[in-house]
Design a protein around this nucleic acid. Structure first.
Length: 504
DNA sequence: GTAGGGTTAG
């Protein structure tokens, strides 16, 4: 059945309206106004200062060869903040982001700030282009803009994420060779990077090896205890807590909150409650984080009543709920109660003057999508924008996913298209969702779109999984698109570890 | 931006 449909010749279908999106990028539409050519009689009004979104779009659409010239146009008033914003906008188009950074680095007057260097290094390392990353480190040193401990934390984090935890530790140990001092803060940071990436054993060994050299403090112990909690090894977390007390380092409220969260993570609700009571008994100054942990912990475990009780207790005790507290409660109601109540709490927080953030909106939108109410989900998307919250990639991913799951592929693709226009670039998840959806309708033309999306994502510095490549290749071969399949096969062999497009 | 709470699905 499947192959019979797919071997039919491609037909013109309604989705063709989306295809233009996936064709080679259009010629730059954003050209600079040419005031120089206007008659001298009336000087034109001063042009609007270019915003980061406009610049990001310009960078994406412009030819790399003319980019340098474009960026040196005196119209652009470069500031570190503007450059950082543009880099953030281009986060999901790493090669273009680096192109932008490198071209602007040749600007006759403007000099990149250390924070822009850090962003660029982060982007290069995320693309696993370590050569570029280190070149940038040397460049920033040569113009005395760093590198800072922050720079090394970024590089270490990227190495760990790429499965190179040992390189990360080497980076930390060699910081001083790059003119950056090792201190307790940077030690705590490397421990945290390892722990957050679940390399807790390694962090603990490093900690035991160097704890006297750096005179470890409560932060170091908290980082390690939190690491054990993250991988649900409460006995180890408690042991670290014990060691801490034995060595005369005073546990803080942060320590208690970490352990409390650990009990919830491991599903030990009674222990969590006992621990909370103990905290109260010891006159520990319980704060909003403690309560948020409880509201979330009980709620996601299905104990909605207890979750609400804790929320009320918090109000009685005069602790003011934060956005995170409301987000926790709303999420709990979305998942374990019903959407009416979740929306009621949303309205209540607004009434009380607590401003919902993008996480709040995304939680509500996801809940509405999940309950099948796409219409209200879209209403909340509008509301989000009206209240100054920009849709982020998570917002789009949720809505696109649910449209596709509901079989409304066209609406999903419309949303995907809207993202590009609204200056929110798709990330790896988005591509996986949309490419996956191209197999649902069993249409031969959908597979061509899948192929084009695959090429686009590689161009933008994402490495698709082997599974994705094979799936698209098989689909194209089965539908008689041999030539296109060959093109994708060539791309696959080219893209290896570092995408070709990175070589500037 | 040295540590703790809130967005991912099945």
């Amino acid at each position: 059945m499947f192959t019979r449909i797919l071997t039919k010749p491609p037909q013109q279908t309604s989705y063709d309206c989306h295809v233009h999106l996936l064709l080679p990028p259009p010629k730059p539409r954003l050209s600079l106004p040419r005031h120089a050519h206007t008659t001298a009689a009336k000087p034109p009004p001063p042009p609007e200062p270019p915003q980061d979104a406009t610049i990001a779009k310009l960078v994406i659409e412009s030819d790399p060869l003319s980019l340098s010239e474009t960026l040196t146009n005196p119209k652009f008033q470069w500031t570190p903040h503007l450059v950082d914003s543009v880099l953030k906008r281009l986060w999901n188009h790493g090669p273009k982001a680096l192109q932008f950074f490198k071209h602007l680095d040749r600007h006759p007057v403007y000099i990149h700030s250390s924070s822009s260097f850090d962003h660029a290094i982060d982007i290069a390392a995320r693309l696993r282009d370590y050569k570029t990353a280190w070149n940038l480190v040397h460049r920033m040193r040569s113009i005395r803009r760093g590198p800072s401990p922050r720079t090394f934390a970024i590089i270490a984090e990227r190495y760990v994420a790429a499965g190179k935890a040992h390189r990360a530790i080497k980076v930390f140990l060699s910081m001083h060779e790059h003119g950056c001092r090792q201190d307790l803060n940077s030690f705590n940071t490397i421990l945290d990077v390892l722990c957050k990436s679940r390399r807790v054993e390694m962090a603990y060994s490093l900690f035991k090896m160097l704890r006297f050299r750096f005179k470890c403090d409560s932060v170091s112990y908290n980082v390690i205890a939190n690491g054990w909690c993250l991988i649900k090894r409460m006995p180890m977390a408690l042991q670290v807590f014990k060691e801490m007390v034995e060595r005369g380092v005073e546990p803080t409220l942060v320590t208690y909150n970490i352990l409390l969260k650990g009990y919830f993570r491991t599903g030990q609700l009674n222990e969590a409650w006992e621990f909370f009571l103990e905290m109260k008994k010891r006159k520990c100054e319980i704060d909003v984080v403690t309560y948020t942990t409880m509201v979330h912990g009980f709620g996601v475990a299905g104990e909605v009543k207890r979750s609400k009780k804790v929320f009320d207790m918090m109000l009685r005790e005069g602790v003011v709920p934060s956005v995170a507290t409301y987000n926790a409660l709303i999420q709990v109601l979305c998942k374990k109660d019903n959407m009416q109540n979740a929306v009621l709490v949303f309205e209540e927080m607004v009434r009380k003057g607590c401003v919902p953030n993008s996480i709040t909106y995304n939680v509500v939108i996801r809940g509405l999508c999940h309950s099948g109410d796409m219409e209200r989900a879209l209403e909340f998307m509008v509301r989000m924008e009206e209240n100054g919250g920009q849709h982020n990639v998570q917002t789009y991913n949720v809505v696109i996913r649910y449209f596709c799951d509901a079989g409304e592929i066209g609406k999903g693709l419309d949303m995907f298209e809207k993202m590009e226009n609204g200056s929110c670039l798709p990330n790896l998840d988005t591509y996986n969702i949309v490419i996956g959806a191209m197999f649902l309708r069993k249409k031969s033309t959908d597979l061509v779109v899948a192929g084009k999306l695959l090429i686009q994502m590689v161009d933008r510095g994402f490495l698709p999984r082997k599974f994705t490549f094979n799936r698209v290749l098989n689909g194209l071969v089965l539908t008689g698109n041999q030539d296109f399949a060959k093109e994708i096969l060539r791309m696959q062999s080219r893209c290896g570890r570092v995408p070709r497009c990175l070589r500037l």
